[in-house]
């Protein structure tokens, strides 16, 4: 058994273990036969949403890291995460207006927020692609993404500031930015499954292009890679994945950075391996963190997105330290 094969088995075991544990852990007592089905359904939805958010972020991380040829790139680099957050905040601020009878009948009320996130992310993506044009350099894309992020974050900051004068709205916005996957239901799953699962599958069609891009744009082009097309679609799929992740899980940080980084030494840098590995690894990581969020006794709300970072940063540091000791800076 080689290192890579073993890694796949471990990934699958950790993921399966997380799924089983995730179904068993919660406030409710599963021996209560009347409620068992309800509890399991709740936990299954929560589990599914956690896994999808993690998978989307980790896969998005692999895509941008390949695109920018930088293992420190994170999916939020394109500005779509900030755009999605802003979209959510705008919807929250308009919540009363939107819910006062003018709510479209076809849209479940709980999807108003996710749809706001998606629209925000897509608007950010359109802006990014319009500003950078057809064949802008990677640096232009990077700078534009950074500036769009800053812009959206500051507009979000303005909204938060205005909202703080309204106690309930202020609380709602803070809760939204720290929100996790609890209470997410089948509507959220139905929204995210195609975007994350099929999105990753289709994004895999660029795996070899991204491998080629590791050698630099000129060399990639010389061996037949349509660099403009790779860039366009890597951006579009990253945006789609992160939008889905924010829509169902809020701001979950660090997954897109840490999971691919942790996996590279084991499965290698080739995208055909790395993307599916990151998909599983991201799902497993967020599912386990969400279990942690459930079992740690706290008075208030333990925000999933903050805990991923609290747990992720030490793991990341450990990996870095180990890599540095072994003289292998992946």
């Amino acid at each position: 058994m080689n290192r890579s094969g073993l890694t796949w088995i471990i990934l699958l075991l950790v993921l399966t273990g997380g799924m089983i544990t995730g179904l068993l852990v919660g406030d409710g007592d599963l021996s209560d036969l009347a409620l068992r089905e309800t509890y399991l359904k709740l936990r299954l939805w929560r589990l599914g949403n956690a896994g999808l958010a993690g998978a989307a972020l980790a896969t998005g991380g692999v895509l941008v890291q390949g695109l920018f040829r930088n293992p420190l790139a994170s999916p939020s680099i394109l500005g779509t995460t900030a755009g999605a957050s802003l979209g959510g905040m705008v919807v929250l601020s308009l919540w009363n207006v939107l819910l006062a009878g003018s709510m479209p009948a076809w849209l479940p009320a709980e999807l108003l927020l996710p749809v706001g996130c998606l629209l925000g992310a897509w608007l950010a993506l359109m802006l990014l692609m319009t500003v950078t044009g057809r064949d802008a350099s990677v640096i232009t894309v990077l700078l534009t993404g950074f500036i769009l992020s800053s812009l959206f974050l500051s507009v979000g900051g303005l909204l938060t500031s205005f909202a703080s004068e309204d106690f309930e709205l202020g609380r709602a916005i803070v809760a939204f930015t720290l929100r996790g996957v609890e209470a997410k239901g089948r509507h959220h799953l139905a929204l995210a499954v195609p975007m994350v699962v099929l999105g990753t599958a289709v994004a895999m069609s660029w795996a070899r292009h991204l491998d080629a891009l590791l050698t630099g744009e000129d060399e990639a082009r010389s061996i037949g890679v349509d660099v403009v097309a790779v860039r366009r679609w890597a951006i579009i799929w990253t945006a789609t994945l992160t939008a889905a992740a924010v829509a169902i899980g809020g701001n979950i940080s660090f997954v897109g950075l840490m999971v691919p980084h942790a996996l590279r030494p084991f499965v290698g840098v080739e995208h055909r391996q790395l993307m599916p590995a990151a998909f599983l690894g991201g799902a497993a990581f967020v599912i386990w963190v969400d279990i942690l969020v459930r079992v740690v006794p706290t008075r208030g709300h333990l925000p999933l997105g903050v805990v991923t970072r609290l747990v992720g940063a030490p793991i990341f540091l450990y990996l870095l330290a180990r890599a540095a000791r072994e003289g292998r800076m992946a």
Binding site: G28, A34, L35, L42, E110, A183, G185, H301
Partner: peptide, 27 residues
């Protein structure tokens, strides 16, 4: 958000305020 705690009480009515996230109420 304490969904399972609430469910374990088998209530027939939950009285909420605007603080509650729509997703929780939907569940």
């Amino acid at each position: 958000a304490d969904l399972e705690t609430i469910l374990s009480l088998s209530p027939d009515l939950v009285v909420a305020s605007h603080f509650a996230d729509e997703a929780f109420l939907s569940r």
